[in-house]
Design a protein around this nucleic acid. Structure first.
Lengths: 346, 346
DNA sequence: AAACCCAATGTTAGCGCTAACGATGCGGTG
DNA sequence: CACCGCATCGTTAGCGCTAACATTGGGTTT
């Protein structure tokens, strides 16, 4: 692998000059071939290509970044718990980035705080990333990013408008409305919502969607119970719902909390969906095996990640003005946790 | 933010020369201060430090990498599904890396294949990463990496020996033995194991640990049922266990499959832990809210990630020979899914 | 006091690439 | 046939840093 006599570099990695010498041209011509620039005769181009192949040459991203043009890398900041959703989206993004020829410099942080985020952005800028992507549900992240002049395009996954930033997201509002309408269609009239935390944009949108569906059908609105996305808070919410005794159906902000609700029902002997119909959100891999299997809203996080990368490419290509892709609507996946009213008396 | 008159650079980012001019020294002295090299008078050192602070100077990682010494970045390859374990470990690693002053260049791939992995390594090497970390449970990943002369230290998270590589892992063998012994201590004599796929090193180690515990206590060994870590395969395994009717307890390779087993039992009306005791592995956040709450083996993935980074730092510091850290043993977390034999007749 | 040493600094030359400009040589125009 | 123009290529100068060497000036040695 190393020690090739045609290679001058001490590390054994061929440089542009090695290719140039081998092809009998100047290094600049090699550069032109590499970047598909015009002004190279077809025959020469081929000769250079052959030399590159023979030496197994690959340009140094570092040197390219130094020389000023594209660095070929993109910064990815992931803030928050390593949940299924964000992790999948990050994975999809990562694969798409590599497929597009980009490297990904990742900065993850378990909890989002303004200073850490700002620092992370600056570090990435120093690394000459061509764009920075933020995957985080918290509103604060978007606000912080909106106030930074990074000098490179910023793309966020955010379900609320992000002034000055490029945005990609699922339509959480529509998803929540569909979920709620499913319960309404099953004949439920007293529906409660367990929402995610106040600082979550997804939670806010789902809450809006829930409220909109109820309003459209003239149903009574109760103040949602606020959780923190974790099963424990869902469990607590479940107990409250049971003790309260009002609701016949519940739209839960995410599958984790829905699991907590199911657990609370199981403990209290409340049959699901007999006495309480439950719909979740996300469709995590476990959802189909809950007891009972969870009816929920599926989000294709993987393709979300790909969409993010597509946006990056687009923005980088034509320096476009603020993009806003909120196209995808989550799909309803019907399983056993929500049923029609009075099923049992049939 | 930009346009500082003391800064020469067109992009507005101060360079070493800006600092040098401001401090009235040469750029090389600035470099010396930056790298804590000797041969700089204390007073000068202070003056340079002040100038750096005033200009908000930060060295360019790109230029540093170019100039040959450390690049300040580490490559992270994550292969496989974005499950809770690997995602958490990657997060812990990422945070630890940043804390240690390193950037992380991440290459994720949903499925591991030799070519993709090899390519990823080469890309990272071109980016001049100082070390490469692989987080993937599959044996093939370790084998492929073992056969590559990357020129930089390679660190893997692997529960089997990795010749020529630095290794970090939990002691899966000990963990599985503890889990099995817990069931034995509860009085169980007919225990079955549902293992992960054959290409998983964790699965193999857990299987060994399970077999060792049974052997020690002279219990009958049945061939483990092989799953693929996903709930669906756990469900299938659960059905087989129930149909078979032999086992009174089951040690399941991970929590996801355990969920499938619980689901199968719930459907078949087999009480857990009444008729079948179940122990899982991983302690995913959902496990405490399964029905019944799952007794399982907790692994602190976050600190695993930190351990990996610690190993990287260590290896980078003294070019040490192959490291091997298999210290941590998973902890038993007792919940409701495993009970003593004949509990019901009490 | 001449020679010397060493701490403290400055100067120069790259790392591998891109960007800007120069230098060829060929065909076509008046 | 002198002239221009354009494709095709080469040369030079950086990007911001580190590494190796050159330079200074005070304090020691002989």
């Amino acid at each position: 692998m190393s020690g090739d006599p045609a290679v001058t570099d001490a590390t054994g990695v061929p440089t542009m000059f090695d290719v140039a010498r081998r092809a009998g041209v100047s290094h600049q011509t090699v550069s032109r071939v590499l970047n598909d620039l015009p002004g190279v005769a077809a025959a020469t181009r081929e000769r250079v290509r052959a030399a590159m192949a023979e030496l197994n040459y690959a340009p140094s991203p570092t040197a390219r970044a130094m020389a000023g043009r594209r660095s070929g890398s993109i910064g990815l900041i992931q803030a928050g718990r390593p949940d299924y959703g964000p992790s999948s989206a990050a994975l999809g993004f990562n694969e798409a980035a590599r497929a597009a020829g980009y490297a990904v410099s990742q900065a993850s942080m378990r909890t989002l705080d303004a200073d850490a985020l700002t620092q992370a952005v600056h570090r990435l800028v120093l690394q000459r990333v061509e764009a920075i992507v933020l995957i985080s549900g918290e509103r604060e992240g978007v606000e912080v990013l909106g106030g930074i002049d990074a000098g490179v395009p910023l793309v966020v996954v955010a379900s609320e408008a992000a002034p000055g930033l490029h945005r990609v997201s699922f339509d959480q509002f529509a998803g929540a409305r569909l979920a709620t309408e499913h319960l309404i269609a099953l004949g439920h009239r007293r529906i409660v919502h367990v929402s995610g935390p106040a600082d979550s944009m997804d939670a806010a949108e789902r809450r809006r969607g829930f409220a909109a569906a109820l309003a459209e059908h003239g149903l009574e609105q109760r103040e949602p119970i606020v959780g923190d996305w974790l099963p424990a808070s869902g469990y607590a919410a479940g107990r409250r719902i049971i003790d309260d005794g009002w609701a016949g159906a519940a739209f839960i902000g995410n599958d984790h909390m829905a699991l907590g609700v199911l657990r609370a029902c199981a403990e209290a002997g409340v049959p699901v969906p007999g006495a309480l119909s439950v719909v979740g959100f996300d469709d995590i891999p476990e959802a189909a095996y809950f007891t009972p299997p969870l009816t929920t809203m599926r989000q294709d996080f993987d393709s979300l990640g790909r969409d993010v990368m597509a946006t990056v490419v687009e923005v980088l290509r034509d320096e476009a003005s603020a993009t806003d892709r909120t196209s995808r609507v989550p799909d309803l996946v019907v399983r056993g946790s929500a049923a029609a009213v009075r099923t049992r008396s049939a």
